[in-house]
Amino acid sequence: MSLNKNKHLVDVLTSHKMSHVDDLLSKYKMKRDEVKNALAEKFKDEIATRAINSGSYAKHDAINIKYDLDICQPFKRNSFDKLEDMADAVFNYFNDEYEDDDLVKYKTRKQRVSTGITFVVDGEEIQMDVVPGRELIKGDYLETNRLNLYVRPKLLQEASSTQTNIQKHIDLIKCKSDERNVIRLLKIWKVNKSKDRVKSFLVELITIRAFDNCSDIPTGQWGKLKMVMEYIRDNIKTIRLEDPANSNNVVSDTMTDSEKNNFSFDMKLMLDQIEADANNLKVYFAVNDEFDTNDDEDKKAAALDIARSGVIQKPWCDC
């Protein structure tokens, strides 16, 4: 029997829901709150407000095989002379005062715009990025949500700064459940196939663009995913995708031309192979076996109960 592509993709999404990891998640959230409290206590005079949630969980497009509970700590405009001082103060705080503490496992890491810390909860490691940001204008954070971040130097690139707006990123995919489902499916592909060079933010932006440019949104999960995959295949090499919070941040430039070629080729290959045999969909978009709720016998029994609760027992067709 040929695979019902829509049903399979819905099962894939269901098995990757964050609700399957609720217990672990609540422990992670407790850790996140500890970090927020620690920051609020240490920098009480410098912060503009308590740290806010960012990352995929805050955007509601997380998948349970890889997610982060990142936070962003907004600082007042006059809290530090230089952005670098702000970034170092946060790093030093976790590095010096929390080293070897049970809150922080392993060495605290200096990352490009954040401080990376690793917790161990119930034997599982979770990464948390703490992104410090500073108000652009004194007292305007609560109104505009705009922040300046310090970008640490890397290889041949010098240190710099960049503007961002976490709230704008969160709002970007708010109320866009169709787009979110496609984003989650592409993330599942990305994580399972180790496509690290394909950044999640880029996937979000190009998916939204594909939907915006489509005059007749297909129905069905496969139709929507296929539409976005075709859009990526045809446009990723030439498209310009800007961070909606900062037009100077060209997100599409985070990939080199050859990486874009590979991304386009990956989409073409997948589309061709799924077209040739629908079962190939399972190769690229697999159900998370750990949380496969597709217990057919249970589902069948439930379906039978509901089916027989109606006033009609048999379907018919006037054709």
């Binding site: 019902n4 049903k7 057919d296 589902k299 069948k300 439930a302 379906a303 039978l304 109960d305 509901i306 089916a307 027989r308 609760s309 109606g310 006033v311 009609i312 379907p315």
Partner: peptide
């Protein structure tokens, strides 16, 4: 009484 049981019947049919 009509639509939900019909959809459940389709779920059953699929399995």
């Amino acid at each position: 009484k009509v639509l939900v049981p019909h959809l459940a019947r389709e779920t059953f049919r699929e399995i």
